[in-house]
């Protein structure tokens, strides 16, 4: 399984902070497509072009591969400081 987690405005738009998702997507781009295929609110929320992602707590891009047991996070641009 893949632990997929969401933060801030994305978490609120989806109404969930984390889901367990079956392994199988080759990369984050494919995983995003699988999540969007669930329909709304996933398709709209994950279509935001500026969303960032991280694999096992390291920022990465959508071509990053995904493996069973990974923690994949999606979140909006950061606003700390």
């Amino acid at each position: 399984m893949i632990n997929v987690i969401f933060f801030a405005s994305l978490r609120e738009a989806l109404g969930t902070a984390a889901i367990q998702w079956p392994a199988g997507a080759v990369d984050i781009h494919t995983l995003t497509g699988q999540l969007c295929a669930q329909g709304e609110p996933w398709a709209s929320a994950l279509a935001r072009h500026d969303l960032l992602c991280a694999r096992n707590q390291q920022l990465c891009d959508r071509t990053e591969s995904v493996q069973d047991g990974d923690e994949i996070a999606f979140f909006p641009p950061v606003t700390g400081g």
Binding site: F7, A8, S9, D50, A54, L59, A73, F75, P76, P77, V78, T79, G80, G81
Partner: peptide, 26 residues
């Protein structure tokens, strides 16, 4: 360190004003 913290470290601000709440845009 401050420049990178502001655009790379995962923190998100939400403001609550007298008119409601909203997430701060990057």
């Amino acid at each position: 360190i401050m420049d990178f913290l502001k655009s790379r470290a995962p923190f998100w601000k939400k403001e609550t004003t007298t008119e409601g709440t909203h997430w701060v845009e990057a």
